[in-house]
């Protein structure tokens, strides 16, 4: 455990998971925008863009962030966020694992109205994981525990506290198994560019991290 905590690579990974979690947890406001565009952040983005799998999406994110130079632009991005993550299901990309994992693959069954509910099995499962790690969802974040932001934050936590093998299993079984579906949905319904790029970057990051963890463990 202590080895993992002090491992600088794990610290980097944890920070990136935490950043992604924060961006899915709420809209970009003035303060966040400043933190995402300051000199220090620009260095980080260019480092991240060194990896060819990330470059295209990082470039879009940086370009989109540069355009957020007015209140209206921020509100438009907030409206994108709202339409994607805060309402509905079929025309949005609700960020809950349960909506992707429970959905029947056959269209016929889907027409029977077996749309999964919120606060279902995946929420219960995540709540248990959090509890085992002496954690819970922050009360100011009144969302089910299978929200993408919660799962990413949990990976940020275990990156520092669990073995590579444990991390790998968790990411494979509880994140990578539904993330591609969510990302495809974002790509389909987002009218802007920011969240498509963010979602794709997240997927690329998770895939590369799985690869790295597999090679390490």
């Amino acid at each position: 455990m202590s080895a993992a905590t002090t491992n600088p690579v794990n610290q980097v990974r944890s920070t990136i998971y935490q950043l992604l979690s924060s961006l899915f947890a709420k809209e970009v406001d003035h303060k966040t925008l400043h933190e995402l565009t300051c000199t220090q952040a620009q260095e980080f983005w260019s480092q991240l863009a060194n990896e060819p799998d990330f470059k295209a999406d990082v470039d879009v994110l940086v370009a989109e962030l540069a355009k957020l130079n007015s209140d209206k632009a921020l509100l438009e991005l907030a409206a994108d966020y709202c339409g994607l993550f805060l309402v509905g299901t079929k025309h949005s990309a609700s960020p809950y694992a349960s909506l992707y994992l429970n959905k029947s693959s056959s269209d016929k069954a889907a027409t029977k109205g077996n749309e999964p509910l919120l606060f279902g099995q995946q929420h219960q499962q995540m709540t248990q994981f959090l509890k085992q790690s002496q954690l819970q969802v922050q009360s100011e974040f009144p969302e089910p525990a299978d929200h993408l932001a919660v799962i990413l934050a949990y990976v940020a936590h275990i990156s520092m506290h669990s073995s590579h093998q444990e991390q790998l299993l968790f990411i494979r079984d509880y994140l990578a198994n539904w993330l591609p579906k969510l990302v495809a949905k974002v790509a389909k319904v987002d009218t802007g560019k920011f969240y498509i790029a963010l979602a794709q970057l997240t997927l690329a990051w998770v895939e590369s991290d799985i690869e790295w963890l597999a090679s390490e463990s």
């Binding site: 600088p8 690579v9 610290q11 980097v12 920070t15 935490q18 950043l19 979690s21 924060s22 961006l23 947890a25 303060k31 966040t32 933190e35 995402l36 220090q40 952040a41 260095e43 980080f44 480092q47 959090l130 509890k131 002496q134 954690l135 819970q136 969802v137 922050q138 009360s139 100011e140 974040f141 969302e143 929200h147 932001a149 919660v150 934050a153 949990y154 940020a156 936590h157």
Partner: peptide
């Protein structure tokens, strides 16, 4: 490692149990 990190202010969505 060693480059700048972006750490967004505000609390994480997780809190101690």
């Amino acid at each position: 490692v060693g480059t700048s990190y972006v750490v967004l202010s505000g609390s994480s969505v997780l809190a101690p149990l």
